[in-house]
């Protein structure tokens, strides 16, 4: 690189890289908006049902995307609920407690899990249900819970490796300082290291969140359906935005239906953006609280 490009060209190339990224994102957004803006309306979300009644769950929505939005939201939150705690614990164990051999073994298992294609995870969930129906639980069926569990397995490596790396990146001096102050190892991890690592951990959670929101292969085999209304419970089938998009793209009859597919894509994008924004907001609140920052300086 040094020999090939003169310094000014190198700087320009480096400037070009983020510009290219920006162009791609803007291009994608423009494409989606151009194709989908005509469909964007309350009608797309709620169909003929009054919006307030639909949001409160008092009336069913049969020809709108609202059930799919709610389904995706439930799915993402349930996935995080299932994956966050074990993911965090596993990351902390690998970074702070595991010896080299077990860290290597578990790390390898995590890499394999991270490399598993989502369709394989979907098949796994589907086969699991088939197995359960034939053996212990004949009434078992594909459901919101099964989809969330399979997705949780899929996103677990993101949370584990981000937690692990964020903890490993903390300088040794900080650990020694904490220990010298009389903090035990557990207290050091809880009060000093985890707050320091929260940015890295949050990045893993955001990745997990985005993946859970967009994944289609897993849910189409484990519980997502085209038309079911709002999810009735954990053991019921549900609608989800990515599946609606896929279904519309595969089965559309006219230009309006295709436009509503693009509208759904825009809504999914907005929903993901909202979740990511909320995650960052939570991270900031947590950081401010755990670090004791406030504008004036009185003891509190």
């Amino acid at each position: 690189m040094h020999a090939m490009f003169p310094p000014t060209l190198r700087v320009w190339l480096l400037r070009l890289a983020p510009l290219l990224l920006l162009l791609i994102v803007l291009g994608l957004l423009f494409f989606l908006v151009q194709k989908g803006h005509s469909a964007l309306s309350l009608n797309l979300l709620f169909g003929d049902t009054p919006p307030l009644m639909a949001v409160l769950g008092q009336a069913a929505v049969w020809n709108g995307l609202w059930p799919a939005c709610a389904g995706t939201l439930y799915l993402v939150l349930l996935t995080l609920l299932l994956a966050l705690f074990p993911g965090l614990c596993c990351g902390i164990y690998l970074a702070e407690y595991a010896n080299r051999r077990s860290a290597l073994g578990i790390g390898l298992a995590m890499d394999i899990l991270a490399g598993t294609p989502s369709i394989v995870m979907g098949l796994f969930g589907f086969t699991l249900i088939v197995f359960l129906r034939r053996t212990f639980c004949p009434s078992a069926n594909t459901s919101l819970l099964l989809s969330a569990a399979c997705l949780a397995l899929l996103v677990l490596p993101n949370i584990v490796s981000n937690t692990r790396e964020a903890l490993a990146a903390i300088p040794r001096e900080l650990r020694i300082t904490a220990l010298a102050l009389g903090l035990g190892k557990n207290a050091m991890i809880r009060h000093i290291l985890l707050p320091q690592a929260v940015h890295g951990i949050a990045a893993g959670v955001v990745l997990a969140l985005a993946r859970a929101a967009e994944d289609t292969a897993v849910i189409m085999l484990t519980g997502a359906v085209a038309n079911s209304g709002l999810p009735a419970g954990l053991l019921d089938r549900f609608e989800a935005l990515p599946f609606s998009i896929y279904y519309t793209a595969a089965e559309y009859q006219n230009a309006d239906e295709l436009a509503s597919g693009f509208g759904a894509a825009l809504i999914l994008l907005a929903l993901s953006a909202l979740l990511v924004f909320l995650a960052h907001l939570l991270e900031r609140r947590f950081l401010q609280r755990s670090r004791g920052y406030h504008a004036t300086g009185h003891l509190c």
């Binding site: 001096e173 900080l174 707050p195 755990s290 670090r291 920052y293 300086g297 003891l299």
Partner: peptide, 8 residues
Amino acid sequence: RVLPVSIA
């Protein structure tokens, strides 16, 4: 070696 938190 201050901790990366507020003074207090």
